[in-house]
């Protein structure tokens, strides 16, 4: 279970990204975070695995206070959380297989992994993740040879290889075209359903969020202004979150 208690984040330049956020996310949920850009979505997401340290408050995962741990224990926590990025963040010059294998790097002591030596189970696990994502045949192709949608699947396979309880996705489909967007979102839904992995995703497109997520969290100026089922969302709530009616680029439109 993931829990935010009075989380405040102030950046060194004085910007208050989070102003007292309280949240509880249960295991197996598919949560979409929506809001304007700059509302604090990205900070909220990155506070979960402490990619961004918070100023005050508590972020708890299964009873562990993320905000206080560091070093080895922080890395242990991070390896149990998958993360997906808007720009895929693959090592473009490496093969797809090696990129996926990166999900296992934190499970071993540094020495052998530095030379690129991984146990056979790990390699198999990496390939199984690729198989799950349906791109097993691309295993030994360089990552930059793939299309955007395929690259995001490689990133998903990398996250799966970590055997995570939770996957954080920061605008996972924002740089994809509409068709691949739907495919990748289907993948997220499948992972959530088949493996019971909790998914917390920042979404730019509101209609996608409503379609795939079971729960919506609306953020405005660093505070949670809506938290509920996607079926409860109506136009008034969207105006509360966005402070205006939606722009056409914020819906995918189908």
């Amino acid at each position: 279970m993931l829990q935010f208690v009075d989380v405040i984040k102030t950046y060194p330049n004085g910007v208050q990204a989070l102003r007292g956020v309280n949240l509880k996310i249960a295991d197996g949920e598919f949560v979409a975070i929506i809001g304007l850009s700059g509302a604090g979505k990205s900070t909220l997401l990155r506070a979960i695995n402490k990619m961004i340290p918070i100023t005050s408050g508590k972020v708890e995962i299964d009873g562990i206070d993320v905000s206080t741990i560091k070093g080895r224990r922080l890395r242990m926590l991070r390896r149990s959380i998958g993360m997906i990025f808007q720009s895929f963040n693959l090592v473009k010059r490496m093969s797809v297989f090696n990129n996926v294998l990166m999900g296992r790097v934190a499970f071993h002591s540094a020495f052998l992994t530095l030379f690129g030596v991984f146990p056979k189970e790990d390699k198999l696990l990496a390939l199984q993740s690729l198989d799950t994502m349906g791109i097993l045949d691309k295993a030994f192709i360089r990552a930059d040879q793939l299309s955007g949608g395929q690259q995001q699947r490689v990133a998903l396979a990398r996250a799966l290889t970590q055997k995570p309880k939770l996957i954080l996705a920061d605008e996972p489909v924002a740089s994809l075209d509409p068709i691949t967007t739907v495919q990748v979102m289907d993948d997220f839904a499948r992972i959530n359903r088949d493996f019971g992995i909790t998914i917390v995703a920042n979404m730019h497109h509101v209609d996608l969020a409503l379609k795939y997520a079971t729960r919506i969290i609306g953020i405005r100026e660093g505070t949670v202004v809506f938290d509920g089922l996607s079926s409860e969302i109506n136009d008034q709530i969207l105006v509360d979150i966005y402070g205006r009616s939606l722009k056409h680029d914020e819906v995918l439109g189908e």
Binding site: R79, I81, M83, V105, A155
Partner: peptide, 11 residues
């Protein structure tokens, strides 16, 4: 970006 991704896996 890949560096960030690696850090997010706990490396």
């Amino acid at each position: 970006n890949p560096y960030e991704a690696l850090e997010s896996t706990g490396a």
